[in-house]
Amino acid sequence: MERPVPSHEELKTQLALLGVSIDDAALPGLQRRVAFYQEAMNRLDNMDFGLTEPALVYDPDAASGGA
């Protein structure tokens, strides 16, 4: 199932759940941004990470593959 583009109301509700409001005039622009993102995420959603891919690390030396 492909990701949908949220409606203006859905975006307002999503932000309201975070306590954030948005001007109605800003909704079309946000919807365009999210639509672009959703289309890109449709491709990523099919990515096979594998069952044993590396765990998340938070390590300042992670760029070198570990201390």
Partner: peptide, 23 residues
């Protein structure tokens, strides 16, 4: 507008982006 877009990024997407980053 960028910040509002950031507020709509699902947690699953954020986590998967970090997983991909490791890969």
């Amino acid at each position: 507008a960028g910040l509002l877009q950031g507020a709509t990024v699902p947690a699953i997407d954020y986590v998967n982006a970090l997983r991909l980053r490791s890969i």
